[in-house]
Design a protein around this nucleic acid. Structure first.
Lengths: 341, 341
DNA sequence: CAGATTCATGTAAGCGCTTCCATCCCGGCA
DNA sequence: TGCCGGGATGGAAGCGCTTACATGAATCTG
């Protein structure tokens, strides 16, 4: 790897001049020098040592992306990335970071302390957190005073310290449940694992829709998916048994919808003839499963990109107008909901 | 961020001593000094500046992970990460990197030159490439002389320059196709997009099985999935029409299997009653789609981990015994294949 | 034409850390 | 007693780059 010093020596000039050319400070260098240097740089395929640059500039050009692993979100092997919704979002994040000239360092972990440690060591310029629960966001922010954007985080305290990119979860769920009600459903279950922040907001939307339709809510309407893998079989068995009293299920993610659909069908219930199902996310598989899943659509790629763009704005000193950025959703109607009566 | 210099000053000793303690050079420092320093380090929550350290040591502790994006592998929005097989593998890679004390920098791109550029800039210690086609591996290796592990790469030239982690694609496909043949199938199609290296090896396995069973192969048995999104609809339409002459399809990935299954069912063909389907990968969805997919199982998480472990070995100077590491597969029999006759 | 201004380039410090080498002290040995 | 060796510590250079500042030449101003 050739260094700036070596280049300067070979060209018979100072490192300052070379550095200035590299950084496009055209008013400091004569046109012909610029040309000479640029040509030479290309010739030797100069690549800067970014460690040295960062050290000198006190920056890093790295954006840390942290996924709380939450592997229990899936029903067997796999991690949070295995949810196509998440991976598509990561795709959006990666593109946006790359296009902005930054670099992405990815962490998948549950251990906040470890995350902070790894992040400080690289002195990353900014942070994107996904699937943080409760006050994880605030806990990280307390330790780490750099721009930070969370995705889909709900905290009990106010999030003065970071920006959140999410949806209007309550409203979109409310709409989806109304769609079920409009199709004649009165016995509607709510499927969630209850640990993810957004699930709580969605629960309020669910309750709201029921209330607006004058349907009474009972605790039995809450279908709690057990995270632990070993408990999974029994849990699913129990849920399917209970589901026989219902005509429709609202699931907090397509993943849950897929699990439930598969389990119900295994036990002889037909979807949507016997029971209707609605999902959330509109992940890649919801349009090819059988029946095609009716679901709340959100744009995963965009979510990732918006998070990055907001963050990079903040790194540049531009605070967004609001600490809460909410993207649009729409109900994507397919074949998993049946009109009854 | 407190620096070593500051610490040394406050403790009234030299930076050398502090540094020695940090690096556990116990024979160079007295026991009591070690204790004093360690206590102080904890107290001030010292975090090293890794840019400075890397600059001084000429390393980076970063492993670059490059995914050739190949978005055409999926039938609509989404990138290569949206394939649950890939994302699970990335999960394995991330864990292994983290557990080894390295850091992961993720790139999703088609542009080899850009990749090389971004990688050299960080002077990464090693490289993992996935889904490189043809001689991408060799092309990167030609420019980048650091340890490198490819996953699922087939190159026409010999890959002296890197290690490949993969499967015995030919053998496992051959077995899967034999399973179809054993179940009475004689008209078997091969579904592939023909661009991914492994698909070619799988094709040879397909041909081998046919040959061994005395079944003649015709070019029409090759079902080519068109990558381009706009052509997708017509392409699928055509493939489904052709599929009516077949009793079974071998698909080079579960993704293809899922696409085909969905498209066939839309057009009134039943799986497996009218046509049997076999997939490859055993991704998360293959056990919950309807019917549950019979597929060649491989361990995505392990594949990622093995790649990392091999790479880190190489970084430490340990060359693996062979340039080709092949992991096991097994046929996972579920419900998408029917015995006929 | 002297002094001010601009332009082009160079000098050198410093970013935080590692590491080679020097120094100093003390006990052991002949 | 003088010398040696090893244990503990410190001095200082250097990793490759940026950048504040200095320098000197050329141009401009009235």
């Amino acid at each position: 790897m050739i260094t700036i010093k070596e280049i300067a020596a070979r060209l018979g000039m100072s490192t300052t001049t070379v550095s200035n050319v590299i950084h496009g400070k055209t008013r400091e260098v004569s046109a012909e020098t610029i040309e000479r240097v640029q040509k030479f740089l290309e010739e030797v395929e100069y690549v800067p040592n970014i460690n040295a640059r960062n050290l000198a500039q006190g920056q890093s050009k790295i954006i840390g992306v942290v996924l709380k692993s939450l592997d229990f979100r899936l029903w067997h092997s796999g991690n949070i990335l295995s949810d196509p919704f998440v991976s598509e979002m990561i795709g959006g994040i990666e593109s946006a970071i790359r296009e902005a000239g930054y670099y992405m360092m990815l962490y998948i972990s549950d251990d906040i302390a470890e995350i902070i440690q790894r992040i400080s060591i690289w002195n990353v310029d900014g942070l994107i957190l996904f699937c943080m629960m409760d006050d994880d966001g605030n806990r990280v922010a307390a330790k780490y005073h750099k721009p930070m954007v969370c995705i889909d985080t709900y905290s009990s305290e106010k999030n003065d310290n970071f920006v959140n990119v999410g949806l209007d979860d309550e409203k979109s769920t409310c709409e989806a449940v109304h769609y079920l009600i409009d199709n004649g459903h009165r016995k509607i279950g709510f499927v969630s694992d209850n640990r993810v922040g957004v699930d709580r907001a969605r629960f309020w939307g669910f309750r709201k829709a029921l209330a607006e339709a004058g349907i009474e809510y009972s605790d039995r309407d809450f279908f709690l998916l057990e995270p632990a893998e070993e408990a999974h079989g029994r849990n699913i068995e129990k849920l399917c048994r209970r589901a026989r009293d219902y005509t429709a299920l609202f699931c907090c993610s397509d993943i849950y919808a897929t699990i439930m659909m598969s389990a119900l069908k295994e036990r002889g219930l037909r979807v949507p003839e016997d029971i209707s199902i609605i999902g959330f996310d509109d992940n890649l598989f919801s349009r090819v499963c059988t029946p095609r899943l009716t679901t709340v659509h959100q744009d995963a790629d965009l979510k990732g990109r918006v998070a990055v763009q907001t963050l990079i704005g903040m790194i540049g000193g531009i605070e967004p107008e609001s600490k809460e950025i909410k993207l649009d959703t729409r109900l994507e109607i397919r074949d998993s909901v049946r009109r009854i009566q």
